[in-house]
Design a protein around this nucleic acid. Sequence first.
RNA 1: GCGGAUGUGGCGAAAUGGCAGACGCAGGGGACUUAAAAUCCCCUGACCGCAAGGUCGUGUGGGUUCGAGUCCCACCAUCCGCACCA
Length: 807
Amino acid sequence: MLHPMGWDSFGLPAELYAVKTGQHPRKTTETNIANFTRQIRSLGFSYDWTREVATTDPGYFRWTQWIFLQIYNAWYNPATRKAESIDTLTYPSELETEDQRRAYRDGKRLAFVSEAPVNWCPELGTVLANEEVIDGKSEVGGFPVIRKPMRQWMLRITAFAERLLEDLNLLDWTDSLKEMQRNWIGRSEGAQVDFRAETSGAILTVFTTRPDTLFGATYLVLSPEHRLVDTLTAGTNRAGVKAYQQAAAGRSDLERTELSKEKTGVFTGSYAINPVNGQRIPIWIADYVLASYGTGAIMAVPAHDERDLEFAEKFDLPILQVVQPPDASKPWRGFCDEGTAVNSSGPDLSLDGLPTAEAKHRISAWLDSRGLGKRTLNYKLRDWLFSRQRYWGEPFPILWRTDAAGNRYHEALPAASLPVMPPTLEDYKPTTDGQPPLARATDWVTLPDGAVRETNTMPQWAGSCWYYLRYLDARNPSSFVGGAVESYWMGTSTSGATPGVDLYVGGTEHAVLHLLYARFWHKVLFDLGHVTTPEPFFKLVNQGLILGEDGVKMSKSRGNVVNPDDVLHEFGADAFRLYEMFMGPLQEVKPWNTRGVEGVYRFLGRVWRLFVDEGSETEYEQNALVDAAAESRWVSEIRLDSRVLDIAPTPAQLKTLHGCIRKVTEDLEALRFNTAISAMMMFVNEAMTWPTRPVSVFRTFLQLLAPFAPHIAEELWEKLHPAGAVPSLGYAAWPVFDPALLVEDTLEIAVQVNGKLRDVIRVPAAATPADLETAALAAEKAKPFLEGKTIKKVIVVPRKLVNIAVA
RNA sequence: GCGGAUGUGGCGAAAUGGCAGACGCAGGGGACUUAAAAUCCCCUGACCGCAAGGUCGUGUGGGUUCGAGUCCCACCAUCCGCACCA
């Protein structure tokens, strides 16, 4: 069992807090880690602190940088569907110079530099990944985000889209979480179709999931950022197109979606030819077409697409039916589902009368045979924007140089030079001219040979992409994780073990961030032979959020935050732990209720009184009051209750105990802590009524209690072993229940008439179904319901119930 | 709009298709106490009834079944995620 704890301590929140308090992030991070450690320790969690890691520790981020180098020095080979060393890349023969081959190689790496529109958050002064933008605002802080072309580091996660999708099937995750990832990856099958521009002859490729509607395409739409917009714009339309492009560029994502109710766009003044029928159709640009999805251009089929219809109606473009709904009473206008092709005949091809699926097939084959298009897969997933203009993150192990032709190119630092430490800065805010903070350290940036360092840093997700691997071998100085250690813990050296982390408990907020990024890194490491499982986390459970007492998410601004320190001070760690587990199912969202803590606190009081002598308890309370300094001595003088004796338990006592062992054991396995606790409450409620309290029974009970309330369990365990030389309760083997002790000699059988409970009878456990039937028919309280009725059928469920069906 | 989850007492919740509401909170009554707190005992889904007992009851409406909180269909509500993804 490996149960470690660590700190994901790089990132924006830590940096923002540091800026706010005017301290260095390393200082505030250390202070916070110390405080969290204190709180966690006071709760008595059994973490293995010898494996503690912090992602901000140079001994840790050295290996984060090392993994980045593995990604940087790899490419995705579509033939093998795997990441491979960049050395296996073959070059097209037309690349003659080393500079040309270098440019080609850099374009293939899994870590690459790209000049593309990115999410820029002016308030935070940094770019953000797609996953970090929620409703057009930054995930951290909630500030507006705009699109801006910038030169940034990207990781080629899109190459793994299909495998990230497929391998979800290997995992024991909830359906909802898997669905979130599937939706985020957003696979869709369709076709690319080439349209030829009428005057320039330029080829315009569009992506569509409905190639069967090609005959209904009455215009094309390009995104404002599409690279062919300039060449396609006719003279008189130039000013309007430019203005539209500029307006779209300056608009935030939020504005873009808020304004989505109203479609906007401009005509370029030029036309394209529909390859299927030679029709001349206008080319428009509009921001409802996204540059970053598909080809950044669409064929509009207003009859059978909601958005195209809205646009066509607004700009008075032709709407042509090409699909007949199966339900003829439904209007064809705006019908987007599958039906039958109509009005779809051209000189070389007719789809008329074909069902949608077949029409898709036919047209795809036709386009393919003419070289006009091909079947394609598209994903919503975008490449991972991996650089940030921040101080508090891992510096890239990358240098920039200039070649003979004056082109800047990048180069990896050797692994031996890791870690690349961030420079010491007085001011770690971004520069006023928009340069990352690291650019302030001019001595650090420029090397003696003229090379300059990359001044961006990695995003906060980098460190958390692989921490579970570092836990396995946290102090290894020569490798990110030792090979034998990795295969032992990840389960590939033992047959039957689940591959990867056996149980990962975490919140849903990581669904399309950390959990996606970590899977991607893991797959790269797997392909390159550094780890032995294709997936990092086998079983994943999302714990539910604990809301404030008012049923709303806890927040400082609402003032409904419960501070664990206060709860601990008033009720102790055991009551706090017990309550959190007793509240309800682990996965459920549920509100905090301090009364509930009092409830489990009372339960712990009853446990205590089950063991200790009341008189000595009173003495302790009085003595501890006048002499608080010697409290621990007075505690040790509390005596056991005189009924707690080393005597043989009665069969009834053993039965109660073993029933409890069974329930607690099974519930723990299934993470049903709430019902396990309720079983222990029932045990205690009954044990309170016993005239004798056999030590052996209570020792076992304490073992059951220990994982929930370790402090009180350990204290009482010690009292039950007066000799002193007893190992801690934590090392005692978990009790095993004896099924033989749970056998009942008589059973309670429910007697139903027409499914309604009428009586409960007691029968010997050995009673046969026939015995049960006889006894049930004779049941006193059931009789009135049988009188004067015909018995149609008697259903006997052995050991449970008898149902008499009457007419 | 799309995807997912959840709907059970005053509240948190239990219940391999087989006695709905275990366990706990809150509430009511009682014991102990000069008194209070703590503790212990009893009651507590709704309605009818003096009682015995009965009727109804797991978001709504259907269905399958000897029997449905549980399975199937439709709908409603709430929460979470995604959202102009062609």
